[in-house]
Nucleic acid binder design. Sequence first.
DNA 1: TATTTATTTGAACGATCGTTAAAAATAGTG
DNA 2: CACTATTTTTAACGATCGTTCAAATAAATA
Lengths: 219, 219
Amino acid sequence: MNAVRTQEKRRQRAPSKRSLETRTRVLDAAEKLFAEHGFDGASLRDMAKLAGVHLAQVNFHGGAKEELFFTVVARRAGELSQLRLETLEDLKARGRPTVRNILEAFIHPYLDRAAHGGPQWLAYARLIAHVSTDIRWRHISEACFDPAATAFAGEIAVLYPGSDHRKIAAALVFSVSAMLSLTTARWRIDALAGSQSDDISMEDCLLDYCEAGIRAALS
Amino acid sequence: MNAVRTQEKRRQRAPSKRSLETRTRVLDAAEKLFAEHGFDGASLRDMAKLAGVHLAQVNFHGGAKEELFFTVVARRAGELSQLRLETLEDLKARGRPTVRNILEAFIHPYLDRAAHGGPQWLAYARLIAHVSTDIRWRHISEACFDPAATAFAGEIAVLYPGSDHRKIAAALVFSVSAMLSLTTARWRIDALAGSQSDDISMEDCLLDYCEAGIRAALS
DNA sequence: TATTTATTTGAACGATCGTTAAAAATAGTG
DNA sequence: CACTATTTTTAACGATCGTTCAAATAAATA
């Protein structure tokens, strides 16, 4: 799987500016189509068309399809995790954070970028949902998302010292699932409500829901 | 889309017993592979192989791929919805149900069948998660799951008369997402916890979580 | 500028996909 | 049994898929 890295050719020159631009166009197109159609439903040819490059360029810049998928997921994972963890560290520096604080530090960066980060971040938010619900991408979750998730689980454990670690993990995954549902199942909320919902009140509603859920599950 | 029904040939004889058996084998195989690999990742040839029939039989008994998918989802949806709604009616006959009662009536039939209903129900549980998180299958959700979901949302509304319908819908979708995560992301819970979790305590944990979440979101 | 490396282009490979059509076999009816 | 409808078998169609390779071009270095 990671034999890729061992086979990787040592490059003697830095990639040119044009090369980096086409690479970005390829990854952006892949991000959109992977997010919209899933791994199997997205074709490399459609990515090339969307990116405005030739088919072989997709392979040149992204490698095989699974490599490309990993690259696209990993590309923004660092920024997201870093923002989450920095917010968490800031909270801890100000004193013992509440469950609400911790949850907000985890959820807000995701929802904020999904809502105001532009079309690529919106696609990326959808992409995370694919990775989080398919055991096939377990290794990607472990590499990209588990480190931050573990830190947040640990912080919750501080507030509930006697709690079963399995319950903490479950409550966190429940919260992540509810959060992801705002990007994967907003259409379903609107259908059941009979009207459209706005982002801001939904985030508050989600935080109220998850905070109380975690407290109840761990008490 | 539903032109299928208008083109349907009027049959003059009831299907033979053997025909019904192969049909069941085809649908069971489709259920497993759709559940495991998603719509695009599952191939009709693999279904034929798993069912032990020839490729053309899959088309004969299931129609085109999208018809087959709908047929498989719809096959068990009635039983599940009926069980949920009957449990709900029983509760109402005994007096005003609590949020906990309502939630349990919705969640327990799903988790119980996923855990003790055999491999086909386990696959079906996974299949529901695919349908619920992909807007592509919105029409299937509307046909198969929204009726029961609407009834449950209405029952929650009785307990919180002043609540915004959008909040009720959101809280219900959050709960459904958390419920589905027990079949799609159990591996993630176990990874974060560092140990395996058992079904029974997870259901209790989920109910504690969702009950408190709904109460908090609607108060 | 000459030479080397990086990138793009163009074309094709083999494999697998969903779908269809026409025989062959089976089951049900008179 | 003869006849009809249903089901199974067999084979193939056209399309699309991911991947690869060699030639052509662009960029960077000496």
